[in-house]
Design a protein around this nucleic acid. Structure first.
Lengths: 375, 375
DNA sequence: GTGAAAGCGCTAACAT
DNA sequence: ATGTTAGCGCTTTCAC
């Protein structure tokens, strides 16, 4: 007898988002005597069945306190028996709210993004929101299409990591102008004054460099990414701050600017490690380039970490299993996703957006592995 | 105040040197004479503006051939000028179709799934569908909740990789009974006669074993997964078929049944490689266990591939970067996702579902790397 | 505590 | 080629 109550309430959790324990018991639904052949059972069918009005049914199913417990129970029971399923599309149209969040990322399959998306879904699920995923493939036009499409779907808000070369922000402005919440993460958009979720890249660079110095490195090189992107310039700034603090000189020859690809890493390793004034520590702007450096060092019989300490950044899955395992910075991808959704839902439900650009900074974690552990 | 914004907007767009049409449109958008204060522009607003009927506007925007090109153009132009955005929610309600696909996977962040999802989104995008992602976390109740929730959202179909221990299939039956397409992939559901997308695991096992024999291995061991799961029993069957074909004996001592975790791999390696009758080739049921075997072999000074060839299965990201790089089977995750959506959309749009269980088998690819290349 | 009625924004007969 | 009308299934104001 408790069964039907839980079941129908559970269905309604999908629409509302009461925070209650959910028990699923979807039995009793195969009683076909009530089933209409065409289409779904509606609240009108239930109303007719019970000779009451549709509005009462609607109220009862939404746990409106004005309905007596007795009729409420009767309605829920009948709803379950008839195999009623709320039509959320209709509800969405009527209430002008979809409980849906749109997500736009460059590429879903990248480790960082799939983890972030996983975190987003986790929170969205708990709060009663759906998540529509789209990927731009780093194509500004496709990003624009996706964002416009999400608007037409009337999502309640969007979470975006921008395509690499997006320069026109009209599609974001569309949301901004209509007061629909946007949250950026990872690749930010300075043109839209809203919430952004980032990790403390400056501090990551600082931690890495300090760690290298503590391991006894006297000459620490840095493979730096494109400095027009904030994440990479921050990673370099942290490096310079640490060097200064440790009393080490900043030598521009020891900073190689590149795109941090596998090829770039190899080239940089050649440049740095073939000269006379070799570094005894290299802080790579990401794990990919660090991988190249490790391979180059091994091929050239440079001992890691004795002769050369190497640290990467991002904690790719391969970092812990390569030989030697790679010291790196763990970015809390899942946590970033969770924060993004929390912040977005807060804006959606409290109808207030930040006055100006608001940056939420999440901490990173230095993971010390063989490639830099000397003692 | 409003004037100021207009000015800024215009300057902004002119500075960007965007296509002049866009400048025009956005300039007009800020002309408040068109804008309703509350809510969005609707086809009725456009109709009123042009003194025509809303249905004509609807037809024009949907490129209905019965509307003359002249009025069509005029309507589209006005729609743009007024900043009209179609309300898909309303359209969905009316047409009883959402152009949305629901996806349920155990964990989004797993490499295989994020790749599959990426493939799904790719095709869905091209075919004009949205993708709602949910994850079960291998919890049957959460899976049930997600599937029911997707039903209430009136998705046009779902794609599912089941939770590990789902035993009640009522939630899938709900879709099946109402003739809403379902496609399973990876973790299948035999209880629902529908389309399933899988890879040819039997053949993968066969290829691996044959490859090992061709490299000169005479005694080939196998780390086998739980045999109640089809993928793992198939992987073993291919192994036995190859052995038989190559005239090698099937020795049950050389088959270790386990869950293929890191720990299982280490334990299996100990068992196999410490005895007197050591194998000279090991086919591991996945890459994770293969990793453990490689590490064990390296620690015990067993030369790879000279003394021992090792092959994994699934091509995890680490396989190509560990030392020695790991030979493995590449599963076309992205392709699986694409196939799943193609098959689902076919069922949605042609309103025909398979009479009985229909299995689409995708080929795998053997990638030979250092861990098994002897010549 | 319950009902009547209006309408969210769109589409699609059925007219003309 | 265009207009009229009637909903899709739900919520919600206003009555009683």
């Amino acid at each position: 007898m408790i069964a039907w109550r839980n079941a129908i309430d559970c269905i309604y959790f999908i629409k509302k988002k009461s925070i209650s324990i959910i028990i699923h018991i979807f039995a009793m639904q195969n009683d076909n005597s009530f089933m209409k052949n065409k289409g779904e059972v509606t609240i009108h069918d239930i109303a007719k069945e019970l000779k009451i009005s549709a509005s009462t049914v609607s109220r009862a199913l939404n746990n409106n306190p004005r309905i007596s417990t007795k009729t409420k129970n009767k309605i829920k029971e009948t709803a379950l028996k008839m195999g009623y399923r709320p039509n959320i599309v209709a509800s969405n149209l009527r209430t002008q709210k979809t409980n849906t969040i749109g997500v736009v990322v460059p590429r879903i399959y990248r480790n960082f993004f799939s983890n972030a998306i996983s975190g987003m879904e986790e929170i969205a699920y708990r709060r009663g929101y759906n998540v529509i995923i789209t990927q731009s493939g780093d194509d500004p036009e496709r990003e624009q299409f996706n964002v416009n499409s999400l608007f037409s779907s009337r999502v309640d808000g969007i979470i975006v990591s921008m395509a690499m070369h997006t320069t026109n922000f009209d599609h974001f402005k569309l949301f901004y102008d209509k007061n629909i919440p946007i949250v950026f993460f990872d690749r930010l958009c300075a043109a839209i004054p809203t919430t952004q979720i980032v990790v403390d890249d400056e501090n990551a660079g600082y931690q890495i460099t300090k760690h290298l110095a503590e391991q006894g490195c006297k000459r620490i090189a840095h493979l730096a990414g494109p400095q027009n992107l904030k994440i990479y310039s921050d990673r370099r700034k942290g490096y310079e701050r640490a060097l200064a603090e440790m009393g080490l000189t900043i030598d521009e020859d020891q900073i190689i600017y590149c795109n941090l690809t596998r090829e770039d890493g190899t080239k940089a390793a050649q440049t740095l490690l073939s000269g006379t004034n070799k570094p005894d520590g290299i802080y790579c702007g990401n794990d990919t380039s660090a991988l190249s450096v490790i391979i180059y060092a091994k091929e050239n019989n440079i001992k890691i970490p004795e002769d050369l300490c190497i640290v990467g950044l991002s904690n790719e899955p391969f970092a812990e299993v390569i030989t030697p395992s790679l010291s790196t910075i763990k970015q809390p991808a899942v946590e970033i996703g969770k924060q993004a959704v929390l912040s977005l839902i807060d804006q959606i439900e409290n109808k207030k957006r930040p006055e100006k650009l608001e940056t939420i900074v999440l901490p990173t974690e230095l993971i010390i592995r063989e490639s830099s552990k000397r003692k």
